[in-house]
Protein backbone atom coordinates (compact mmCIF):
# COMPACT_ATOMS: atom_id res chain seq x y z
CA UNK A 1 0.00 0.00 0.00
CA UNK A 2 1.46 3.30 -1.07
CA UNK A 3 1.23 6.36 1.14
CA UNK A 4 -1.63 8.59 0.08
CA UNK A 5 -0.58 12.07 -1.03
CA UNK A 6 -2.33 15.01 0.55
CA UNK A 7 -5.07 16.84 -1.30
CA UNK A 8 -2.59 19.61 -2.14
CA UNK A 9 -0.06 17.14 -3.49
CA UNK A 10 -2.76 15.32 -5.43
CA UNK A 11 -4.04 18.53 -7.00
CA UNK A 12 -0.61 19.80 -7.99
CA UNK A 13 0.35 16.40 -9.33
CA UNK A 14 -2.84 16.22 -11.34
CA UNK A 15 -2.09 19.64 -12.87
CA UNK A 16 1.45 18.54 -13.63
CA UNK A 17 0.10 15.40 -15.27
CA UNK A 18 -2.16 17.55 -17.41
CA UNK A 19 0.90 19.57 -18.47
CA UNK A 20 2.51 16.33 -19.60
CA UNK A 21 -0.67 15.24 -21.36
CA UNK A 22 -0.84 18.49 -23.33
CA UNK A 23 2.73 17.81 -24.38
CA UNK A 24 1.66 14.39 -25.65
CA UNK A 25 -1.32 15.97 -27.36
CA UNK A 26 1.06 18.34 -29.17
CA UNK A 27 2.94 15.31 -30.34
CA UNK A 28 -0.24 13.73 -31.66
CA UNK A 29 -1.99 16.63 -33.28
CA UNK A 30 -1.53 17.15 -36.99
CA UNK A 31 -2.74 20.74 -37.25
CA UNK A 32 -0.21 23.47 -36.56
CA UNK A 33 -2.92 25.72 -35.24
CA UNK A 34 -4.06 23.27 -32.62
CA UNK A 35 -0.46 22.69 -31.67
CA UNK A 36 -0.09 26.36 -30.81
CA UNK A 37 -3.37 26.31 -28.93
CA UNK A 38 -2.23 23.31 -26.94
CA UNK A 39 0.89 25.24 -26.08
CA UNK A 40 -1.28 28.05 -24.76
CA UNK A 41 -3.27 25.56 -22.69
CA UNK A 42 -0.07 24.07 -21.32
CA UNK A 43 1.25 27.48 -20.35
CA UNK A 44 -2.07 28.22 -18.71
CA UNK A 45 -1.73 25.04 -16.66
CA UNK A 46 1.77 25.99 -15.56
CA UNK A 47 0.56 29.44 -14.54
CA UNK A 48 -2.34 27.88 -12.66
CA UNK A 49 0.06 25.61 -10.86
CA UNK A 50 2.16 28.63 -9.90
CA UNK A 51 -0.96 30.27 -8.46
CA UNK A 52 -1.86 27.16 -6.48
CA UNK A 53 1.66 26.95 -5.08
CA UNK A 54 1.65 30.68 -4.29
CA UNK A 55 -1.64 30.43 -2.43
CA UNK A 56 -1.06 27.25 -0.48
CA UNK A 57 2.66 27.53 0.25
CA UNK A 58 2.55 31.30 0.73
CA UNK A 59 5.13 32.37 -1.83
CA UNK A 60 3.69 35.74 -2.93
CA UNK A 61 6.31 36.34 -5.66
CA UNK A 62 4.82 33.48 -7.59
CA UNK A 63 1.63 35.48 -8.18
CA UNK A 64 3.62 38.04 -10.12
CA UNK A 65 5.40 35.29 -11.97
CA UNK A 66 2.14 33.55 -12.81
CA UNK A 67 0.63 36.79 -14.07
CA UNK A 68 3.66 37.50 -16.23
CA UNK A 69 3.88 34.05 -17.69
CA UNK A 70 0.13 34.13 -18.30
CA UNK A 71 0.46 37.34 -20.28
CA UNK A 72 3.51 36.18 -22.14
CA UNK A 73 3.05 32.50 -22.77
CA UNK A 74 -0.71 32.22 -22.98
CA UNK A 75 -1.39 35.42 -24.92
CA UNK A 76 1.62 36.96 -26.61
CA UNK A 77 3.57 33.95 -27.85
CA UNK A 78 0.60 32.01 -29.26
CA UNK A 79 -0.67 35.20 -30.84
CA UNK A 80 2.64 35.82 -32.54
CA UNK A 81 2.90 32.28 -33.85
CA UNK A 82 -0.72 32.18 -34.95
CA UNK A 83 -0.22 35.40 -36.87
CA UNK A 84 2.74 33.88 -38.61
CA UNK A 85 0.63 30.84 -39.45
CA UNK A 86 -2.10 33.03 -40.91
CA UNK A 87 0.43 34.70 -43.16
CA UNK A 88 2.13 31.46 -44.07
CA UNK A 89 -1.11 29.81 -45.12
CA UNK A 90 0.03 26.38 -43.98
CA UNK A 91 -2.03 24.11 -41.81
CA UNK A 92 -0.70 20.62 -41.59
CA UNK A 93 2.41 19.93 -39.57
CA UNK A 94 5.30 18.35 -41.40
CA UNK A 95 4.48 14.72 -41.05
CA UNK A 96 6.91 13.05 -38.79
CA UNK A 97 9.21 10.20 -39.59
CA UNK A 98 7.11 7.99 -37.35
CA UNK A 99 3.43 7.17 -37.19
CA UNK A 100 1.49 8.77 -34.39
CA UNK A 101 1.14 5.58 -32.35
CA UNK A 102 4.88 4.86 -32.54
CA UNK A 103 5.61 8.49 -31.66
CA UNK A 104 3.53 8.09 -28.55
CA UNK A 105 5.29 4.88 -27.62
CA UNK A 106 8.75 6.41 -28.13
CA UNK A 107 7.78 9.50 -26.18
CA UNK A 108 6.39 7.29 -23.46
CA UNK A 109 9.73 5.52 -23.21
CA UNK A 110 11.62 8.81 -23.08
CA UNK A 111 9.23 10.26 -20.54
CA UNK A 112 9.45 7.12 -18.43
CA UNK A 113 13.21 7.42 -18.51
CA UNK A 114 12.87 10.93 -17.09
CA UNK A 115 10.66 9.57 -14.34
CA UNK A 116 13.10 6.88 -13.34
CA UNK A 117 16.05 9.27 -13.48
CA UNK A 118 14.38 11.70 -11.11
CA UNK A 119 13.35 8.89 -8.83
CA UNK A 120 17.00 7.99 -8.41
CA UNK A 121 17.94 11.53 -7.39
CA UNK A 122 16.10 11.69 -4.09
CA UNK A 123 15.42 15.38 -4.50
CA UNK A 124 13.01 16.66 -1.92
CA UNK A 125 11.23 19.96 -2.15
CA UNK A 126 9.61 22.25 0.32
CA UNK A 127 6.85 23.40 -1.97
CA UNK A 128 5.87 20.59 -4.31
CA UNK A 129 5.94 16.79 -4.35
CA UNK A 130 8.74 15.26 -6.39
CA UNK A 131 6.32 13.56 -8.75
CA UNK A 132 5.94 16.97 -10.36
CA UNK A 133 9.69 17.07 -10.94
CA UNK A 134 9.57 13.70 -12.66
CA UNK A 135 6.71 14.95 -14.78
CA UNK A 136 8.67 18.09 -15.64
CA UNK A 137 11.62 16.07 -16.81
CA UNK A 138 9.24 13.89 -18.80
CA UNK A 139 7.82 17.03 -20.44
CA UNK A 140 11.34 18.05 -21.43
CA UNK A 141 11.99 14.60 -22.83
CA UNK A 142 8.76 14.49 -24.82
CA UNK A 143 9.42 17.96 -26.20
CA UNK A 144 12.72 16.61 -27.50
CA UNK A 145 10.85 13.84 -29.27
CA UNK A 146 8.48 16.45 -30.70
CA UNK A 147 11.34 18.52 -32.08
CA UNK A 148 13.06 15.46 -33.51
CA UNK A 149 10.17 13.75 -35.26
CA UNK A 150 8.48 16.83 -36.67
CA UNK A 151 9.93 18.51 -39.69
CA UNK A 152 8.50 22.00 -39.82
CA UNK A 153 9.64 25.19 -38.19
CA UNK A 154 6.46 25.81 -36.22
CA UNK A 155 6.43 22.40 -34.56
CA UNK A 156 10.10 22.70 -33.73
CA UNK A 157 9.65 26.17 -32.26
CA UNK A 158 6.59 25.09 -30.29
CA UNK A 159 8.60 22.12 -29.11
CA UNK A 160 11.24 24.46 -27.81
CA UNK A 161 8.71 26.72 -26.10
CA UNK A 162 7.11 23.76 -24.41
CA UNK A 163 10.54 22.56 -23.33
CA UNK A 164 10.77 25.88 -21.55
CA UNK A 165 7.39 25.14 -19.95
CA UNK A 166 8.82 21.89 -18.66
CA UNK A 167 11.76 23.74 -17.17
CA UNK A 168 9.35 26.24 -15.59
CA UNK A 169 7.50 23.35 -14.03
CA UNK A 170 10.76 21.94 -12.68
CA UNK A 171 11.70 25.35 -11.32
CA UNK A 172 8.38 25.50 -9.47
CA UNK A 173 9.29 22.26 -7.75
CA UNK A 174 12.90 22.82 -6.83
CA UNK A 175 13.40 26.57 -7.10
CA UNK A 176 10.14 28.25 -6.12
CA UNK A 177 12.05 30.70 -3.97
CA UNK A 178 14.28 31.86 -6.80
CA UNK A 179 14.48 35.64 -6.58
CA UNK A 180 11.73 37.24 -8.61
CA UNK A 181 14.13 39.40 -10.59
CA UNK A 182 15.83 36.30 -11.96
CA UNK A 183 12.54 34.65 -12.85
CA UNK A 184 11.47 37.78 -14.66
CA UNK A 185 14.78 37.87 -16.48
CA UNK A 186 14.24 34.26 -17.57
CA UNK A 187 10.83 35.17 -18.92
CA UNK A 188 12.16 38.22 -20.68
CA UNK A 189 14.78 36.06 -22.27
CA UNK A 190 12.08 33.73 -23.47
CA UNK A 191 10.28 36.65 -25.07
CA UNK A 192 13.43 37.69 -26.88
CA UNK A 193 14.00 34.12 -28.02
CA UNK A 194 10.43 33.97 -29.27
CA UNK A 195 10.90 37.14 -31.27
CA UNK A 196 14.06 35.72 -32.79
CA UNK A 197 12.32 32.42 -33.54
CA UNK A 198 9.47 34.29 -35.12
CA UNK A 199 11.82 36.40 -37.18
CA UNK A 200 13.75 33.38 -38.39
CA UNK A 201 10.55 31.50 -39.18
CA UNK A 202 9.51 34.44 -41.31
CA UNK A 203 12.89 34.55 -43.01
CA UNK A 204 12.70 30.84 -43.62
CA UNK A 205 9.22 31.12 -45.02
CA UNK A 206 10.09 34.02 -47.27
CA UNK A 207 13.16 32.18 -48.56
CA UNK A 208 11.70 28.76 -49.18
CA UNK A 209 7.96 29.50 -49.35
CA UNK A 210 7.29 26.62 -47.00
CA UNK A 211 7.37 25.93 -43.30
CA UNK A 212 8.90 22.51 -43.76
CA UNK A 213 12.46 21.91 -42.72
CA UNK A 214 12.81 18.91 -45.02
CA UNK A 215 14.72 21.05 -47.52
CA UNK A 216 17.27 22.25 -44.98
CA UNK A 217 19.91 19.81 -46.09
CA UNK A 218 22.30 21.97 -48.07
CA UNK A 219 24.84 22.44 -45.31
CA UNK A 220 26.57 19.26 -44.36
CA UNK A 221 29.99 17.73 -43.90
Amino acid sequence: MRPVPSIYAGTTNAIAVLVLLTEFAMLRTALLRSQVRLYAVQSLLVSALAVVVAAVRDVPELYALAALSLALKVVVVPWLVLRLLRDADAEIAGSGTLSVASEVLVALLVGGLGFFAVDQLHVSSRVLPTTALGLAVAVVGVSFVLMIVRSDVVSQAVGFFSLENGVSLASLVVAAGLPLILEVAFLFDLLVAVVVFGFLMRVHHSRTATLSTAALTRLRG
Binding site: N13, V17, V100, A101, V104, L105, L108, G111, T131
Partner: peptide
Protein backbone atom coordinates in the same frame (compact mmCIF):
# COMPACT_ATOMS: atom_id res chain seq x y z
CA UNK B 1 -8.08 3.58 -34.15
CA UNK B 2 -4.61 2.46 -33.15
CA UNK B 3 -3.95 6.09 -32.24
CA UNK B 4 -7.08 6.15 -30.12
CA UNK B 5 -6.16 3.03 -28.20
CA UNK B 6 -2.56 4.26 -27.99
CA UNK B 7 -3.89 7.31 -26.17
CA UNK B 8 -5.65 5.04 -23.69
CA UNK B 9 -2.43 3.10 -23.30
CA UNK B 10 -0.54 6.33 -22.64
CA UNK B 11 -2.95 7.34 -19.89
CA UNK B 12 -2.81 3.95 -18.23
CA UNK B 13 0.99 3.74 -18.32
CA UNK B 14 1.28 7.27 -16.95
CA UNK B 15 -1.05 6.28 -14.14
CA UNK B 16 1.30 3.51 -13.11
CA UNK B 17 4.35 5.75 -13.57
CA UNK B 18 3.09 8.54 -11.37
CA UNK B 19 2.05 6.03 -8.80
CA UNK B 20 5.15 3.93 -8.80
CA UNK B 21 7.56 6.83 -8.81
CA UNK B 22 6.66 9.33 -6.21
CA UNK B 23 3.41 8.02 -4.82
CA UNK B 24 1.25 10.23 -7.05
Amino acid sequence: ITEFVAAAFLLAVLAVFTLYLGGG
